[in-house]
């Protein structure tokens, strides 16, 4: 009951919703970069939404499926195929033992999520299955997948029932992906950061008026974005303090860094902004070279957007549990 890695792809790791409760020991949270896609991938195969799945980055891996199983692929479109036939995304798919599952060219987004009914048999470290690459902890031996790795399934799928002969059968129905993926130039909404007032008025204006480009120095820890250099009114060192998912720090060179899943727990650079929780998954689907536009909202708006989005996920959860019965 497992997936065997034939080609590892650029970066394929096990991720769940992250490691919570150890940040005061400096333990990084990690977890999926696009949590909505991860949660939906799990719901589509009847798992708990926070179960671990494979996060596939930009250039696809190839797997041999070693046992009949039910999978779902969500997130960015990395041209998944089975035995060279296009594999439809955002729906449950019955896959036959021996099938070759291949991810190809990245058509949209940056990260795909591959879930399996019953979940992957990976042990937890400090309460989570997420891989933290720099700390070599969690996930599959604390690292990205390599050739010949065998990722085992738990094998407690409740929805694998009927017999079939094709290499795969995809459900006719699916979840509309549009709502969960970024548009061509995504608008990322933010709240003023803890040191917003330290920046010059012209930098505050440029932050919302300019397009910023995701640089090639971007990874799971954070995205460096380039645009007009952002300046402080007076040069000063601030004391290190906690940061969170989506904190936008500005080091002295003026190029902002959006802190993401593998971010440090604290930081010492001034924070100009804070990406709202609802929009973090959109950033996780951006690739180097793509552009972002920032737009400021109030805390109340951010809270309402979060609650509304969670209500949508809850409706989806109910609909999917009925569909899978």
């Amino acid at each position: 009951m497992s997936l065997r890695v034939i080609k590892p792809g650029l970066l394929t790791t096990i991720q769940d919703l992250g490691r919570r409760g150890f940040q005061k020991h400096g333990v990084i949270v990690s977890g999926a970069m696009d949590t909505y896609s991860l949660r939906i991938a799990n719901l589509l195969v009847g798992n708990q939404e926070g179960e671990a799945a494979l996060e596939v980055t930009l250039m696809g891996p190839t797997f041999e499926v070693e046992e009949d199983c039910v999978i779902a692929i969500t997130g960015g479109d990395l041209s998944p195929t089975i035995d060279d036939r296009t594999l439809p995304m955002w729906r449950p798919v019955y896959v036959k033992k021996g099938a070759i599952l291949r991810f190809g060219r990245c058509k949209s987004g940056c990260r795909a999520y591959l879930s399996v009914a019953g979940g992957y048999a990976i042990s937890e470290v400090l309460g989570s299955k997420s891989t933290y690459l720099r700390g070599q902890m969690g996930g599959y031996e604390g690292r990205a997948l390599q050739v010949d790795d065998v990722v085992p399934f738990n094998g407690h799928s409740t929805i694998l029932k009927h017999e079939w002969t094709e290499s795969f059968i995809a459900a006719k129905w699916f979840v509309h992906a549009k709502e969960f993926l970024p548009s061509r130039i995504p608008v990322i909404r933010f709240l003023a950061g803890s040191q917003y007032e330290y920046f010059t008025n012209s930098s505050k204006l440029q932050f919302v008026d300019s397009l910023f480009k995701v640089s090639s120095q971007s990874d799971r820890m954070g995205y460096r974005i380039s645009g007009p250099a952002l300046e402080l009114q007076h040069k000063r060192d601030i004391l290190s303090e906690a940061v969170s998912n989506g904190s936008i720090q500005v080091p002295p060179d003026g190029n902002p860094i959006v802190l993401l899943a593998d971010r440090q727990t604290t930081g010492g650079y001034p924070k100009i902004a804070q990406v709202i929780t609802t929009d973090l998954s959109l950033i996780g689907q951006l690739k180097p070279g793509e552009s972002i536009q920032f737009s400021q909202v109030t805390l109340k708006e951010a809270e309402q957007l979060y609650i509304q989005k969670e209500q949508k996920v809850k409706q989806l959860k109910v609909a999917l549990s009925l569909a899978l019965q």
């Binding site: 005061k24 004391l239 809270e303 979060y306």
Partner: peptide, 21 residues
């Protein structure tokens, strides 16, 4: 309440807004 992180001059308290709501 999710967790908290102490620093030199402050304590950051993380929470889940949905659970609070």
């Amino acid at each position: 309440f999710v967790e908290c992180v102490p620093a030199y001059t402050n304590l950051t308290v993380f929470y889940d807004p949905l659970v609070v709501f």
